[in-house]
Amino acid sequence: MDMKTTPMKALWQIPVIIVITVCFALGYNQIRANTLPLFCSWSENISENTVTEYTSTISVAEAASLFSNNDAVFIDARPESIYKQGHIRGALSLPWHQAEEKCFDVIVNIPPEKNIITYCDGVTCELSDKLAVFLSDLGFAKVRALVNGWTIWNQNNLPVDLPEAQR
């Protein structure tokens, strides 16, 4: 029986495990379909730039009223995979971290004077604010963010689209 399992072995094992992990992680990230940029600035933009400059938010009551009059376009700023798990009924998906690549597919049919309501989830979520600023800069006049949108929409039992399995 080998009792020579010395703690010192950890000194070389830990770096080796980390190197192997990094090789797998970066390798898989390169070959997968939707490669994620290693040092993307989307989160930097969110956390550092214009964090509090955009204060145009909308109340859930007003958002619901625009919704029932079919007078606003809702845009979901969360990642597409989360959007697919459920979103405000009729909302379009424009994940903030893919906003620049995908925005023209999404906004091409929206008239500039249309009410646009962006949302994400959680009171600390800033994706919707960032997306609202982004869309304003593109020339949309009436963009507002619904704070804590997904949660508050559900709390008010307003219409949502869910995947088939959850209906």
Binding site: I18, T21, V22, A25, L36, P37, L38, S41, S43
Partner: peptide, 18 residues
């Protein structure tokens, strides 16, 4: 910090699995 988020998100799950 923002710059580290993607690299962390790419690596951590592999570290867990390995």
């Amino acid at each position: 910090p923002g710059m580290l988020i993607n690299i962390f998100a790419i690596t951590l799950p592999w570290l867990e699995v390995i």
